[in-house]
């Protein structure tokens, strides 16, 4: 049931963005997509099961569908729109491109953030740690193999080794 509205401000990708006269029950995903024009985070389940709406809230990876926007006024929010620009992909995005880890692309923004989160915290994860780290993200197209390969490439590149730019699946 919609009720009283309030205006507030969110810190998104380093910009202070005003949210005018919004119902306080709106999810952060809804506010990002519908009020702030940032549709990079996707809505695929609205119950925190698929990871398609992953964003960073004060450097913690969360499902934006399960966060109230009005609760995030004191937090630093980062969305996929804050990673890479027209001329430059982040290393994780570039590895997804190079390995062929994208198909329909709907889950991709969430996975990009999940992989950044993993490698920023654990620079040298084991295979099982990688699978566990992205197991909050559903992908129906790729079967994940290429995504795992992309993680390995970034891992190798960041550690200074020359990452294999293979053509294998």
């Amino acid at each position: 049931m919609t009720g009283a509205t309030e205006s507030y401000e969110l810190d998104v990708d380093g910009r202070a963005l005003p949210v005018a006269a919004a119902w306080l029950g709106e999810s952060l995903l809804y506010v990002l997509r519908e009020r702030l024009g940032l549709p990079g985070a996707k809505n695929a389940c609205e119950q925190g099961e698929c990871g398609s709406c992953s964003i960073f809230l004060d450097d913690v990876l969360v499902n934006a569908c399960c966060v109230l926007a009005a609760d995030a006024t004191d937090a630093r929010i980062r969305t996929v729109e804050g990673f890479g620009d027209a001329d430059h992909l982040s290393d994780v995005q570039a590895a997804f491109l190079g390995t062929g880890a994208v198909q329909c692309g709907f889950c991709t923004p969430g996975l990009i953030l999940a992989v950044h989160d993993l490698l920023d915290q654990v620079p040298d994860p084991t295979g099982l740690e990688v699978r566990e780290a992205i197991s909050g993200n559903l992908c129906r197209c790729t079967g994940y193999g290429r995504i795992l390969q992309a993680v390995e490439e970034v891992k190798a590149t960041r550690s200074g080794a020359s990452g294999p730019r293979g053509e294998s699946p």
């Binding site: 969305t79 729109e81 990673f83 190079g98 994208v102 923004p109």
Partner: peptide
């Protein structure tokens, strides 16, 4: 040849435009 997909840079940056991203 295993050419990289031209679709992907857009999708990787969250610039894909799916149905619910339209008709604001």
């Amino acid at each position: 040849a295993p050419v990289a997909r031209s679709e992907d840079p857009r999708l990787l940056r969250g610039e894909g435009r799916y149905l619910d991203d339209l008709g604001h």
